[in-house]
Design a binder for these strands. Structure first.
Lengths: 141, 141
DNA sequence: AATTTTTGTTGCTAAAGTCAACCTTTTTAT
DNA sequence: ATAAAAAGGTTGACTTTAGCAACAAAAATT
C-alpha cells in the first residue's frame, strides 16, 4: 500500500510536468487559465449562471462576478435575464466569444498534439486505453 | 488522431479533478503550493541555488528571492556561500525544515490514500501498471 | 406577513507573482 | 590586461488573482 501511494505521487509529478497541466490554455493568450475555464464552462453548460460557476469551480462569487463583468465589457458573453426568476441571469457566449474559445481550444490541442506527435498509432491506442482504465478504476467509488 | 487528442484532454480534465492536483499540499498548512514545491526541491536537489529554482519552476527570481528570505527567517533553510563562486549561495534544509516537509508529504500522502482507499489490491496494481505504461509511452521520445 | 435563502454586486484587502533597476562577482571578448 | 557582457541575487513598485464581508433585490420558507 505505502509503495503504491508513492508510485501514484510519482506519476502525478510526472504527469503534471508532461502535460503542462498548470498552464494548459494561458500561453500568450489574453485569458488567464481561470478565465479560460470559465469561458469554456459558460459555453458548454446549458443555462449557465454566475452561481453555477462559483459552486462548480469553488471560486468566490465576487471574483466570478467581476470576471463575468469583464467578459461582458469585452463582449465575449451576454447576460440574459431569466423570466421565471428575476435574480438570475443566464450567461451566453457571443460569436466573438466563440471565436476566442476556438482559439484557446486549438492552442490547447496543439500542446497535446506536440506531446504525442512521435507516438505510433498502436501505442497511442494503448495510451488511451490506459487512461480509460485509470479513469474507470478511480471512478468506481 | 483528432479523436485521440480529445480523449487525452478529457482524461486530463478528469485527472486534475480527481487528484486535486492543483492543491496537492496546501490544505490547512502554512505553506502555499509553490512554497511547498520549492521546499521539496531544495531538499531533493543537490547544491540547490536560487537561480536553479527560478529556472526549474519558471518563476521570477525576485519572487524566489523573497520566498528564500522568508524560509531563512523561519529557519527552515540556511544559506551556505559557495567557496568557488562568491555570487552563489547553496540552499540547505534545516532540521526544522525537514520536519515541516515531512508533515507536508504525509498530508499529500493522505490525500492520495483517501482517493484510493476503497480500491482493491488487484485493481490498485492495475492502476499502477496503467500509470507506468502511460509514463513509458510518453517518455520514449 | 415576517424571516430566511438565493443570486448577484461592490469595497476592501491579502496573497501570489512579475518587471525593471540595481549591485556584486565571474566570464568572455578585444 | 581591461572593457564589456553575463550570471547570481536583492529590492521597490506594481499587477493579477482571489477571498471576505456587507449589501440589495428577488424568491422561498415559516
Amino acid at each position: 500500500m505505502k509503495k503504491h501511494i508513492g508510485e501514484i505521487k510519482k506519476f502525478n509529478r510526472f504527469y503534471i510536468r508532461m502535460m503542462g497541466l498548470f498552464n494548459l490554455y494561458t500561453d500568450e493568450s489574453s485569458y488567464s487559465a481561470t478565465e479560460a475555464l470559465i469561458l469554456f464552462e459558460i459555453h458548454s453548460f446549458p443555462d449557465c449562471t454566475a452561481s453555477h460557476l462559483s459552486e462548480y469551480f469553488l471560486f468566490d462569487k465576487g471574483y466570478i462576478s467581476r470576471i463575468i463583468k469583464k467578459f461582458e465589457e469585452n463582449q465575449v458573453i451576454s447576460r440574459v435575464p431569466s423570466k421565471e426568476d428575476r435574480r438570475k441571469q443566464y450567461l451566453e457566449i457571443t460569436q466573438a466569444g466563440k471565436e476566442d474559445l476556438d482559439e484557446l481550444m486549438s492552442k490547447a490541442n496543439l500542446n497535446v498534439e506536440n506531446m504525442v506527435k512521435n507516438i505510433s498509432e498502436v501505442e497511442l491506442s494503448e495510451l488511451i486505453s490506459s487512461m480509460n482504465k485509470i479513469e474507470k478504476i478511480l471512478t468506481q467509488n
